[in-house]
Design a protein around this nucleic acid. Structure first.
Length: 306
DNA sequence: CGCTCTACCTGTGTGC
DNA sequence: TGCACACAGGTAGAGC
């Protein structure tokens, strides 16, 4: 599933392959895949036609392509969230059909470009969506990827905190805010208004690296431990980006293909019963927040209930 | 306002 | 072979 490193890989790929192109045609095959767009799918398509893609940015798992604007018009962007199974596949022209049938049947939106290519939004489980959204200012701008900064973010992203691969993120400030929360560590790590981009997989990996159990209360963390956890989350996502970031193909942005990291390098996520890489204790799976959590019961002792 | 819980969605895998 | 159901999970919004 696309996590922050995969979304960054897609952002980087789009930056190299579609910037400067103009949208010629938009086909919405599944109306549900256009969401958070006032006016619905028809307006979505109409609003995109004829627009040039001038920049691409990301915050957490949100990704957007800034559109050129007529003089005096409000700034807008093509906003995308990949959900848990979304892909943005760049088709160059002429483009041989390499996809299997499963991929073809899950093309939800096709955005034709003036170079004869297209961007296909493919999404099996339909948690992802596209929209055209107004861009609004944030106090210090939004990351444009790899250290670049753009001054605006789409409205649906305005409440989302900076992520851990954003050079402007102040980890000490995030650690302090985390310790002020009245909740448990994993819940805080997954709260996008505190820090964005960490999903269930990287949360478990970061907690393991920091030797923390996810159900420890945030208020009992030391400043150093909270900071260590954030550093661990940034580290594991950076490694994943390095491992998966090279598989971008001009023809085919395969999110799953970019995730070879998952099967090789995960210490605990999905490793129930397998030995902890540090101490060989079998990894356990528990239910938390209605989903699976994986941890080492020796390295990450749960809090003692009082 | 801060925190918690659930609906949303569909293909895959498993048990009966 | 067929059916029922658990599971995957980020986000928004309802609820307390």
């Amino acid at each position: 599933m696309p996590e922050l490193p995969e979304v960054e890989t897609v952002r980087d790929g789009l930056a190299g392959h579609v910037l400067g192109s103009t949208v010629t045609d938009v086909e919405v095959f599944r109306p549900y895949s256009v969401r958070r767009h006032e006016g619905g799918p028809v307006d979505f398509a109409a609003r995109l036609r004829g627009r040039r893609l001038v920049a691409v940015a990301r915050r957490g798992k949100f990704l957007w392509l800034e559109l050129d604007e007529p003089e005096g018009a409000p700034a807008e962007a093509l906003l995308g969230h990949l959900g848990m199974s979304g892909q943005l596949l760049v088709r160059s022209a002429p483009s041989p059909i390499l996809d299997d049938e499963a991929t073809r049947t899950h093309v939800r939106v096709r955005i034709g470009l003036d170079d004869g290519g297209a961007i296909d939004f493919v999404d099996q489980r339909t948690f992802g969506y596209l929209a055209v959204a107004d861009l609004v200012p944030t106090p210090d701008g939004a990351p444009g990827g790899l250290g670049a900064t753009v001054p605006l973010v789409p409205v649906p992203v305005a409440h989302v905190a900076r992520d851990l691969l954003d050079p402007a993120t102040d980890r000490d400030a995030v650690a302090a805010a985390m310790r002020r929360r009245r909740t448990v560590v994993k819940r805080a790590l997954l709260d996008q208004t505190l820090v964005s981009g960490v999903g269930n997989i990287y949360a478990d990996e970061a907690l393991w690296r920091a030797r923390l159990h996810g159900e420890r209360p945030t208020q009992k963390l030391t400043r150093a431990k909270a900071r260590e956890l954030l550093d661990a989350a940034a580290e594991v996502m950076t490694e994943a980006l390095a491992a998966g970031g090279t598989s971008f193909d001009a023809l085919y942005v395969n999110v799953n293909g970019a995730s070879g990291y998952f099967s090789r390098s995960l210490a605990v996520y999905g490793q129930e019963g397998e030995p902890c890489p540090r101490c060989a204790t079998p990894v356990v799976r528990t239910r938390f927040m209605n989903r699976s959590s994986y941890s080492c019961p020796t390295c990450q002792p749960p809090p003692t209930p009082r």
